[in-house]
């Protein structure tokens, strides 16, 4: 579902993953200044995505919604065309639903407006896999919320429908965001690691009583 250029401004150079279970940005040779530059780049990237979603909402989507109202007015005047007009309005609804799906892949509006907890709960409600979300209402930077949201989406989108429930917890610890995905497919942890490393974060996989948890930690103010 997500096919956008997440990696567009990603980390160059060595594979940041240590083989085995512990994934972080070890092996990077960037200094503190590079970290700051990289973080700024990431912030710009995610802020731009958020702005693009907003432009879709305020521009074409609003225009199409207004068009349905004008068609309704036309239907009022031309009674014999009413069914054809309703059909056109139905097609515009489909156009808007398609635009919404695209907007969700750029930056989910709910993530922007209500934060990670609300956006992940909404995501859990539409995914075929059973997912429980435990998250407080606190907010993080747009980049952190964006990276965390799409990391969860990537881990969960292929999760088998009939298997165990995935438990997601989101909280703020002393350093920033702490996101745990318990019971998820840990193979996916590797694929989301570079975006998290981009923000100076780490991905770790721990196993407890046969249940594996992907632990994501992203520093933020």
């Amino acid at each position: 579902m997500v096919s956008l250029g997440h990696r567009g401004a990603g980390i160059q150079g060595t594979n940041p993953y240590v083989s085995g279970e512990f994934l972080h940005n070890e092996g990077m040779t960037l200094g503190p200044d590079d970290d700051t530059a990289r973080r700024r780049q990431a912030d710009e990237h995610w802020t731009r995505r958020r702005d693009l979603e907003r432009q879709l909402h305020d521009g074409p989507a609003l225009r199409i919604a207004a068009l349905t109202l004008h068609l309704g007015l036309l239907g009022q005047k031309a009674g014999d065309l009413r069914h054809d007009i309703e059909d056109l309005q139905g097609q515009l609804h489909i156009v808007l639903q398609e635009l919404r799906l695209i907007a969700d892949q750029i930056y989910p509006p709910l993530l922007q407006e209500a934060g990670l907890g609300a956006a992940l709960r909404e995501l859990a409600s539409v995914l075929p896999a059973p997912v429980r979300v435990d998250a407080a209402d606190g907010r993080f930077d747009p980049a952190v919320e964006g990276v965390a949201y799409f990391a969860v989406l990537e881990v969960l989108r292929d999760h088998p429908v009939t298997t165990r429930t995935v438990d997601i917890t989101v909280r703020r610890d002393d350093d920033g965001l702490a996101l745990d995905l318990a019971g998820a497919d840990t193979g996916r942890g590797v694929t989301v690691g570079d975006r998290i490393a981009w923000l100076g974060g780490v991905v770790e996989i721990v196993e407890d009583a046969g249940r594996r948890t992907i632990k994501v930690r992203i520093p933020c103010g």
Binding site: A65, T68, L69, L71, G72, G75, Q76, Q89, H93, L96
Partner: peptide, 12 residues
């Protein structure tokens, strides 16, 4: 309601 779903006199 969705914005594009109230676009007729009857529904509105």
């Amino acid at each position: 309601r969705l914005k594009e779903k109230v676009g007729s006199v009857d529904v509105l």
